[in-house]
Design a protein around this nucleic acid. Structure first.
Lengths: 229, 229
DNA sequence: ATTACTAAAAGACGAGTAA
DNA sequence: TTTACTCGTCTTTTAGTAA
């Protein structure tokens, strides 16, 4: 254990302090037995006792010990410590640029997308619903594994429907699209309605010829950003 | 270590997960070296590495490891875990009955208070500003050590000023009061303006004769509640 | 530079026990 | 019942090292 030059409370101690706070230790003394606290935290009474001693030693709680138990109160310092932790979580969940980021390598298209962007029935919808007049050709990306998880989370976003249609007795399936930026360029992720695309591959359309504009070739890494909400 | 039957993530792992979230691991892959993470958490790179392995094993993060570092993303499960923790802190700070609780034993008064409640210049103010027509006699309490801290926190509350005055060439000092309830009965804590009362003793006035009403004698424990804000 | 293994050192844990 | 000590064990940590 590093000496922790006054900078931070050890994780277990903080967890223990949190439990005391949940029992009401911020508002006044709460009766806590080491057994009860131990059960709460999944540790032995002995260890619970040690935690309380440690918290007291750090000035995070004060105690009144009696033969039949003890009363514990969280000090101002202890409360500050909890507030700092709370602030971290607020930063995680309340702020943020609200952007999902995907990363992957450029691969040769599966062809399907190229086909889509040459059909008027689709192109019109891309233009009207997504605001993209697609460059003839798509951009296919194999996500790094760490991005596949992010892609899953994106299922909850507001995808725009691209309707299927029939033309000259031929049926064209539906799809859905989501606006994004590719290294700064506007575009959209397109996911065919039925066909099961592999989890780690996404197909992108853009008004720009991205391969040329970004000077990319197969295997190069690309970053994609998607606004949340 | 208990087996932790799927019920909870170990405190250190959670702390580590929180750090990753603060680096942006919720929105997409973040480049994290074990060294950087270790420095952030005050642990060695080896331990940081083990933490990441552990988090991955629990399905809380996914990783892409490269010879020159790694990309880490928080999974949906990991995010849930963080949200649960966040919810705990919200409960601590956002909810609650907003009551400070004090506890102590009834002691014989220091006399000073009894004096106060017999002087019209004070009594009028108690009545008008605190809404209390004081019973002649005060209630003195020696706080248990665990309550002394709470009393300190109460300094931030909205105390009502009791002004000093002069009568027949005699000077009467100011004081401040704060409404409270004593075992359910209305009253107020009175703190003399100048005199330095011991930290662990509080003096209470009430419209009721509390000793009789509550059937208390010296040494009995009493609970006092004060509304916050 | 990385990550993560092995092995020695450090530290934490819970059983037993006293007060 | 409590709290918290000692002590033996076991876990965790870090240093060293390999890939």
């Amino acid at each position: 254990m590093l000496t922790n030059y006054g900078c931070m409370v050890v994780a277990e101690d903080l967890q223990c302090l949190k439990s005391i706070a949940l029992m009401g230790g911020r508002d006044g003394p709460v009766s806590i037995s080491t057994q009860k606290l131990g059960a709460e935290l999944g540790i032995s009474p002995q260890t619970a006792s040690r935690r309380l001693i440690s918290l007291e030693g750090q000035g995070l709680i004060t105690r009144t010990i009696r033969p039949d138990g003890q009363f514990v109160t969280i000090t101002g310092t202890g409360e500050e410590e909890l507030r700092t932790e709370y602030a971290s979580y607020q930063r995680i969940f309340e702020e943020g640029e609200r952007m999902y980021r995907l990363e992957g390598e450029l691969i040769s298209g599966l062809g399907e997308g190229r086909y889509y962007v040459s059909i008027e029935g689709y192109v019109n919808q891309f233009r009207e619903r997504l605001g993209i007049d697609p460059f003839p050709g798509t951009f296919n990306i194999r996500l790094i594994p760490a991005s596949v998880e992010t892609r899953r989370k994106m299922a909850g976003l507001d995808w725009i429907a691209i309707d299927g249609f029939t033309d000259h007795d031929r049926t064209f399936g539906g799809a859905k699209g989501l606006r994004c930026t590719i290294e700064g360029y506007d575009g959209a992720i397109i996911v065919p309605g039925r066909s099961h695309y592999p989890d780690d591959i996404i197909e992108i359309i853009s008004g720009t010829g991205l391969r040329t504009a970004l000077d990319l070739k197969d295997g190069d890494m690309v970053k994609i950003e998607v606004k949340r909400e």
